[in-house]
Design a protein around this nucleic acid. Sequence first.
DNA 1: GGGTGGCCTG
DNA 2: CAGGCCACCC
Length: 718
Amino acid sequence: MENSQTTTPHTTSALVPQPSTLEGHHHNILVDDHHRSSSSGGRTFLKSTATSSSSPSSNITPTTRRTRHRVDAGEPRGCFNNYYSPRNIFQNSSSSPISTNLVGNSSAPEYYFQPMKMLSDFIGNSHSHFNSHNNTAASQLLLREMLQKKKIGYEDDVSEISRERENQHSDESIGCSSGVNNNNNNNNNNNNNEEIKINGCKKRKLYQPQRSDFDDDQEDFKDPDDELEMEYKHRDSADEDEEMLKSPMAPLTRQLLTCERKQIPRSILQSWKENFKSTLMTHINELVDSQFNVLFGSIGNSLQHPASNSHQPSSRQQSITPPPSSIPSSGPSDQVLNKNHFNGGGSVLLNENDKLRMRFYRPPYSSALAGLAASNNRDVYEDDGPLSLVVTPKKKRHKVTDTRLTPRAVSRLLGNGSTPSDHYMESTPSPRPQMPSPPTSVPISLPTSVAIPNPSLTESRHLFAPYAPLFNSVRSSLESPPTMIPHSMINPADYVQQLREISAAQQQAHRDLQREPVHQQTILERERGGSAGSADSGDTTGGSFDITPGVVYGPGHSSSTLTPMHLRKAKLMFFWVRYPSSAVLKMYFPDIKFNKNNTAQLVKWFSNFREFYYIQMEKYARQALSEGIKIAEDIHVSTENELYRVLNLHYNRNNHIEVPTNFRYVVEQTLREFFKAIQSGKDAEQSWKKAIYKQIIARLDDPVPEYFKSPNFLEQLE
DNA sequence: GGGTGGCCTG
DNA sequence: CAGGCCACCC
């Protein structure tokens, strides 16, 4: 089939833009850019009215309004906008929280996430701790607790505090107003809403099960508040060992230390030890205090003392830290904070390992605290619709994955088995550069683009085990024995957490049961539990399941989690079907235990695939038109065409399979249809694409090969 | 009213 | 890719 069409090179090139051709036509090349930048091919509803877009001869009807005129869902007002561009394609990469996952995925697994829990424990413990020792006034306790929670919120983003302040500045008098008036630079209008709008979104996430705040944090490495992270890490790193040895969990601590020693220069450890004992508690207390003060400061001094007093029964530190204004309060911790203040500033104290960890490890503190604070605030301020300043933890997007880099590729990158500490590059959107992998024992991470599962990282190991050789290999080389010390504990910061957690384990029980790391058994039960168990209950505030969506106990066990591998598979399926029904999809993912959410997710994937597909179609159709093609039949798509390559790159990036020949035909037909529609000016109509979608494209679906149903298929994808 | 699919946005 | 929204369909 191809032959017939490709036989006439000149024709082909003329029709479907090919690189070489494009160069010749400067004009054409620009088309993309115009579209890209103006996001308009013709009508831009959003951005500009009559963008200068030089778009081809085709009319550009400046439809100024952005109102949705769609006659039919989806078939919009012909928006020519939003051509996908590399930028669009990669745009998320920088913000992808996935990077975190990588760590877990490759070898660090669930351990990695414990810090979050520990953090929560820590916090919780602190609370109870305080409370238990101060029964003086119930009211005070309550208030204190509230405050503390709030504080925690602040703490969450130490670095963000300033930001928060700016935002919430208006209400220094947090007391009553904090929850009400503040928070909202963003949500001024939302105060009245029952539902909390987060960044304009008030609905729960459909695909990403609601995750506890903690979990959320775990995943995201990338919070805006890097500084904060730095601060905490730093602070912690500066201190910790000895205390640990004396703690109840000494044995564990020792283990950790041992581990650490392997990585860290002795000298560093020594210094840590020396500093640790004297500073550990101080840091902790100060941390708490400073946060308290932040709150108190805004609320009023009157509360300050009681709080601080109640604080530490042991009264290790009574010092009252400076008011909010000087957030980084005085004291050791402050110094650290200041030092870290940034971008390298803190590096002074860091050795390579530290740095590494800093990248890999996301201190539970920040986000976790924020999350906790948020949740707590809800409790406390039940009546207040709006949440306190701290609240609105930004929703993190959990992109299932980016399969640009195959596991194999990763393994190649890994080479010796050490990790490509790609996190250094995590902000780089581009395809993973091959980084020499620093020999690190610490959290090993894979490039963010490596498939990491969705939220449910905790189970990544299990998830991938059956499928990806890569992961197995990685694990074999990198993964520690079962007894492996949690990576999370490697970082001194974690020690603190751990301490707190253990020492106060009992007290927190009431609160974070739901946050508990889910035991596999539990998970399994949940999954079996049917609807409830599945990540469905998105509504529930806690939606805890998402955390560990699906655990694969081994081949043959189904999971409710769609992994990057599944995504890859879905993309490949797109070569056959553009409009698969959910029923069909379910058939082809026998290893998935479907529920409402993951079904929707899968369907959404195809929707996204189509979107990309159609965007490309329109784009190239217009190019063809601009190149002077008069007859749709003159358009031929060969496997060499740029369009084809782009599509292949998108759906079959690593050439996992040979693209079915029919796909080329489908592409060609689609392109022609778009071309004809544009040529005839139909694109001026509201839903001009709809006809193409339904009458043409949807009918070109082919049956997906049976082998896609094979449980081994994913493995074959590597 | 639920399901579906497209558009827009991040 | 995901979230949200919306319009359509049944």
